[in-house]
């Protein structure tokens, strides 16, 4: 059976992992390649690298990093941050990225989703959505959740699917950083609404939060950063518990 995926996310700046990585066993937790290899060994199913300071100047640094990750890591990975054109994606895929994640650029110019899925196939086009629930209604936000829009989450998700995206990475701004659990109600609605896989993001704090987002939120994958980086949750223990709760995982 297809398993639920556990996806650690690494924030990258100038080719280094930033903030909040504290792996006791690693000589250099700032080196994304070392960290990625470690996560692959520890049972991560996939990795996401987010270039949080994506600028033209550091694009080459990011390409070098992607090339090194592809060279040394034997599980799939997604690269996001500052991607706004077919050329950007072409470069990253040529360096060995399996998928790319686009966010604000897709909101600004939705045709980009069509262009990418037509040229490279839906399977490598992840559209990330940052959304916030305001008075009961979910609205899409841009630039890491800082700029509100009047676009409704569920309308946008449907449009993303229709335009050919292969996957949605949904982050709830209300839950992100709280360690209080994922936005399972919104996730379940998304999962019913569209027929492409959904990655849940924002709110992971405990092992049970992951179990809940797979069962209640119907998510296909769950992404987290700090609980893994600070070894608050071990991926193996997480997966063993999920299996106990009859959730299919790769062990």
């Amino acid at each position: 059976m297809l398993t639920k995926r556990i996806v650690p996310c690494l924030d990258i700046k100038d080719g280094r992992t930033v903030k909040g990585v504290n792996f006791v066993d690693l000589r250099d937790a700032g080196d994304p390649v070392v960290l990625a290899k470690q996560y692959a060994e520890l049972g991560a199913d996939e990795l996401v690298f987010l270039d949080i300071a994506a600028t033209l100047e550091n694009r080459k640094t990011m390409h070098d990093m992607v090339l090194k990750v592809a060279e040394q890591v034997n599980i799939p990975f997604t690269v996001g941050g500052g991607i706004s054109s077919v050329e950007d994606v072409d470069d990253l895929l040529h360096c060995g990225a399996d998928k790319v994640s686009i966010n604000s650029s897709a909101v600004k110019r939705p045709e980009l989703i069509n262009e990418l899925s037509k040229k490279f196939g839906s399977q490598c086009v992840v559209v990330a959505i940052d959304a916030k629930q305001i008075e009961g209604e979910w609205f899409v936000h841009l630039a890491g959740g800082t700029i509100p829009t009047d676009i409704k989450l569920f309308d946008w998700a449907k449009e993303i699917e229709d335009r050919g995206a292969g996957e949605i990475l949904f982050t709830s701004m209300n839950h992100d950083g709280t360690k209080g659990g994922f936005a399972n109600e919104a996730l379940a609605t998304l999962s019913e609404l569209v027929n492409i896989p959904i990655i849940a993001s924002g709110g992971a704090g405990t092992i049970q939060h992951f179990a809940d987002t797979f069962k209640l939120g119907k998510a296909d994958a769950a992404l987290a950063a700090s609980v893994f980086h600070f070894e608050e949750i071990s991926i193996i223990e997480l997966k063993e518990e999920l299996r106990k709760q009859n959730i299919e995982v790769r062990l």
Binding site: T3, G166, P197, D220
Partner: peptide
């Protein structure tokens, strides 16, 4: 859900 994506 299509694509079939992940570990099987």
């Amino acid at each position: 859900k299509v694509p079939h994506m992940g570990w099987n």
